[in-house]
């Protein structure tokens, strides 16, 4: 029985530290990388996984000390994994709209970034009113 507790403790500690390291790398990328579109990669993937790891660790911890399965953390994890891509997509879209500066190495020959192209308001589709 002691063996089981020790193993679980190790698993929880691993998830806690892995989560911290991933979140740190994501924020480090946010602070270090050179243009907005590159910065977007850090937080949208790495930070989300970091917080997911911490939530899994807390789920394991509470399941262990209460002796019953505790799934509430799962709700936050799923919510974060569903919403992170959506907010990243919206942010990227607004950055395209403002035509933010890109890193000179970027291959950016798409029509959204050409001069003179204007993003008009949405028409009646997609539930938006004209």
């Amino acid at each position: 029985m002691i063996g089981f507790y020790t193993v679980m403790e190790g698993v929880i500690a691993f998830f806690l530290i892995a989560g911290g390291v991933f979140a740190f790398i994501g924020s480090f990328g946010l602070a270090r990388l050179k243009d907005f579109f590159m910065r977007l990669h850090g937080p949208s993937k790495t930070s989300t996984l970091g917080v997911g790891c911490v939530l899994i660790a807390s789920m394991c911890y509470f399941s262990l000390i209460e002796g019953s399965l505790s799934l509430q953390g799962m709700l936050i994890t799923i919510f974060l994994f569903i919403t992170a891509p959506v907010s990243a997509h919206l942010l990227a879209k607004s950055a395209l709209h403002y035509k933010l500066a890109r890193d000179p190495r970027t291959l950016d020959d798409i029509e959204e970034l050409k001069d003179g192209e204007d993003d008009e308001k949405p028409n009646g589709e997609n539930g938006h009113l004209p």
């Binding site: 994501g26 977007l40 992170a84 950055a95």
Partner: peptide
């Protein structure tokens, strides 16, 4: 730019969730 700031705030709330947990 503004999107940079919003992205940073977005990351900040995600990190604060982890701190609270």
């Amino acid at each position: 730019a503004l999107p940079d700031r919003i992205l940073a705030l977005d990351t900040m709330y995600v990190n604060s969730i982890a701190l609270i947990v």
